[in-house]
Design a protein around this nucleic acid. Sequence first.
RNA 1: CGGGAUAUAGUGUAAUGGCAGCACGAUUGCUUUGGGAGCAUUUAGUCUCGGUUCGAAUCCGAGUAUCCCGACCA
Length: 408
Amino acid sequence: MKQSQFFSKTQKNAPAGEVSVNAQFLTRGGFVDKLMAGVYTILPLGLRVMKKIEQIIREEIDAIGGQEFEMPALHPKENWEKTGRWSKMDDLYKVKDASGREFALGPTHEEVIAPLMKKFVSSYKDLPFAAYQFQTKFRMELRAKSGILRGREFLMKDLYSFHIAEKDLDAYYEKAKKAYFKIFERAGLKEKTYLAFASGGSFSKYSHEFQTVTAAGEDTIYICEKCQNAVNKEIKSETPVCPVCGGKKFKEEKAIEVGNIFKLMDKFTKPFDLKVMDADGKEKMLVMGCYGIGLSRLMGTIVEVHHDEKGIIWPESVAPFGVHLISLGKDKEAEEIYKNLLAKNIEVLFDDRDVSAGEKFADADLIGIPWRVLVSEKSLAAGGVEVKKRKEKTGKVVSKKEIADLIH
RNA sequence: CGGGAUAUAGUGUAAUGGCAGCACGAUUGCUUUGGGAGCAUUUAGUCUCGGUUCGAAUCCGAGUAUCCCGACCA
């Protein structure tokens, strides 16, 4: 992609009052644009990152047998009344059409998938079953905050699993837990992400959150010094020792919840009477698990974790481009390198703009593409191009032919 | 939802009751190219509604929006 033709533009200053790091850099870099509090347009640069994250999640969820589908965002009121959440859930967006009929804008999709399963699952032989989607969710946050970390409309991956027996749910739950660790590892958050025990609601003792340690986090977690599992502050008083190893020493940290897995048991299968025939010829109520990851929140969290004073430092796995190619008055030579890199399936953002060198460097640092390849009078005289990693201070000159091998 | 702060051009700001100004950005042209360069050109604004006043960006009231703290948050 040539930067001169790219839709996104960078800004020198962040809007006044915007204090969160993710909002500042993502806005200035041209990744997102705020429409209103908690509601963001994802610009082309941001969408590239989101698609990378989405693909990582897709691969890992497919690997544990999830089947991708897509449910509507607009839900009939009746389904939400059936589960009691129409009146109980206070962050539910409710909309009315001209005839006065009411709908919910989906904050989550148990009310849609449970009745859906009734149509497709009729025997224990159909189980276990797991389905997931990437979908825009709506939650009426009274106080949207922290840039894209807590929005009113946001993209989420939600996975739901259905089982004939609790032990099957338990087994799948453990598989999902492992898949989640892989996802956060691949997204560049391995060192900072902890499994945290959280409130399990009315049916199970605990749910599990994946908490990434960052100062921008809204939650407080206590990390067990012995086994590195964590406990959310909300249950810390009733869980004074580590539920995994019994350890008593904890480190307190601010963290952001990047994922949550939950055993719902029959909470949503019951209202929809989701029963099937088991092998013993008796009808059984299904049990259910749900597993969520907020993609937009994950993108914001990655920025909170990976940045310096100049801008974002994307992990290679989620970077919008692999290489930022900068030409300083050497467009012809740069064009040739651009084409060669593209031919090798490397994603390149080619800064062919007619602006000063300083502006190009500042933008490259802000946007945060992992590799910078510079073509200039100086680099050509030294034998080729200068290649520099975003996270490193200095680069080195390599010949034009060596670039692709270096970058892989 | 409770509390606090703020609201002037795309962004940052000035004008405190008397001509809405500056900088950055954007635009067009020229020049320039190793850390946000220069000259010229064009562009665009007082959140909304009401009140006080000869006169309101400025004072008063209400509303709205945004940010922050808290509460809430499968």
